[in-house]
């Protein structure tokens, strides 16, 4: 058993070393975006590193339409502006062609005014470090449960 504690200790040291070497670099590489009213609907798409999804392909759909209302590419800063012509749900599907995609939607009740508040994809307020610690805790928790389960099934045999 002592041997495993030593292994754990070693690997934990290595992991912590990585964290200390790159303290400010703990960023996910998912995608996130917002839709805001700005003389139309302004879409902003970025990776969770903060980098914009520059020139990614975008398709705009109204309700369940299969043919896109508009399609094209985001600009260099990951922005795209369009004017909805009718009320309903408007959906933006963004794809960078390298496996990263993002889907955003918003409800438009009056396309002429576009004054209603539009929901954007919310992120929880939990910081990345906390999420990271939660993830690690879950992993160790699961390992512990599995370790215990393997132990009991071994005893039964």
């Amino acid at each position: 058993m002592y041997q495993f504690y030593k292994i754990n200790h070693l690997a934990m040291m290595a992991m912590l070393a990585i964290l200390f070497i790159f303290p400010s670099l703990l960023l996910a590489h998912g995608t996130q975006g917002t839709i805001k009213i700005n003389q139309g609907l302004l879409i902003r798409a970025k990776y969770s590193t903060g980098e914009p999804m520059a020139y990614a392909n975008i398709k705009i759909f109204h309700n369940q339409d299969k043919i896109p209302f508009q399609q094209g590419n985001l600009d260099k800063n990951g922005l795209f502006l369009f004017h909805p012509d009718q009320k309903g749900i408007w959906m933006a599907k963004i794809n960078d062609g390298m496996g990263h995609a993002l889907s955003l939607e918003t409800k438009v009740s009056n396309p002429r005014k576009l004054t209603q508040k539009t929901p954007s994809q919310g992120n929880t307020n939990i910081s990345k470090i906390w999420k990271l610690l939660m993830g690690i805790s879950i992993i160790f928790g699961l390992s512990g449960i599995f370790f215990w389960w393997k132990g009991t099934s071994k005893k039964d045999q």
Partner: peptide
């Protein structure tokens, strides 16, 4: 199992470390 747990945690963390 402990080794697998450690490596899972390392993999989980490593993918979130971005090197400019």
């Amino acid at each position: 199992v402990p080794r697998v747990g450690i490596m899972t945690a390392a993999f989980f963390v490593a993918s979130l470390i971005h090197v400019p």
